[in-house]
Computed example of a mutant assay.
Amino acid sequence: MTISHKFISRGFILAGLMNMSVLIFSNYFTNPVISKYDPDVMSNFGLLMIVIWGLAYISVEKVYDKVRWLVLVFAIEKLIYGYNWIQWITTSSVSEVYEESAMAGIFYAIYGVNDLLFCIFFIYVFIRLVKAKNK
């Protein structure tokens, strides 16, 4: 199965928009609950960096085929966030977060799944680009 260039480009846009959705979940960095439950990774600075990563994904949407190593960096970044979420979700209570803030609870319930899915997407794109380069 081959995924079209147009579909992959849209994947980069979607990855970026998903990252930027942290603005909604954090109420534009004014909701302290997200930071409270993972202050090392999800501080306001950390949330801002998630937005910046999102802008980076969108910025390569039309030229991803020229920056294959950056696509691998994106996959690694998503893997790290996914791993952090697995660590968090196995030692913390989403329902406790949700009781304080529904938006923060939803964020913690889904962000890792999102990151792991986009990790797979970026790995797929990277492998496809490496194979194309070797032809």
Score class of each variant (00 low, 15 high):
G16W: 07
D40K: 14
E96P: 10
R128P: 08
Y57C: 05
I110F: 10
V63N: 15
A104K: 01
S92K: 13
I52M: 05
T2R: 15
S26H: 01
D38K: 05
S4L: 09
Y37H: 14
I34S: 07
E61L: 13
I50S: 03
V125W: 01
Y28R: 10
A15W: 00
L79K: 10
W88Q: 03
S59I: 03
L48K: 08
E99K: 14
I80E: 04
K66T: 15
L14D: 00
I13Y: 12
S43M: 01
Y81V: 12
L79Y: 11
I127F: 14
E61G: 13
S26R: 00
I127G: 02
C119Y: 07
V94G: 05
F126S: 09
M42E: 02
A75L: 04
V60T: 09
G112E: 02
T90Q: 10
F29D: 02
Y64K: 08
I52A: 09
L48G: 08
W53D: 06
L79A: 12
Q87L: 10
D40I: 15
V51G: 04
I110Y: 12
V33K: 03
Y28C: 13
Y98W: 11
K133M: 07
L23T: 06
N134W: 08
M18H: 09
T91V: 03
D40H: 15
I8T: 06
L79E: 05
W88E: 11
I86P: 05
A15K: 00
Y64L: 06
L14W: 01
I120A: 13
G82K: 04
W88V: 04
D115R: 00
I120Q: 01
K78C: 05
F7Q: 12
P39F: 15
V60Q: 04
P39I: 09
A102E: 14
M42P: 07
V63T: 15
I13M: 13
Y64H: 09
F107D: 01
A132S: 15
K78N: 10
S43E: 01
V130D: 14
F74M: 06
H5S: 12
M103R: 09
N27E: 15
F12A: 02
R128D: 13
N134E: 08
Y124Q: 08
L14V: 06
N114D: 06
L55D: 02
I127T: 15
G82L: 00
S93V: 06
M20G: 10
F25E: 01
V63H: 11
R128L: 11
S35W: 08
N19A: 10
I120L: 10
S9R: 13
Y108M: 01
R10W: 14
N31S: 02
R68K: 08
I52G: 07
S4H: 12
V94S: 04
D38Y: 14
I24E: 08
I110R: 03
N114G: 05
L129E: 07
V130P: 06
S59T: 04
V33N: 03
Y57T: 03
K36F: 01
E77T: 11
I86T: 12
S92E: 13
K6V: 09
Y108C: 00
Y98S: 07
E61D: 15
D65M: 07
I34F: 09
L116P: 08
G16S: 07
F29S: 05
N44C: 01
N44D: 11
S93Y: 10
L47R: 01
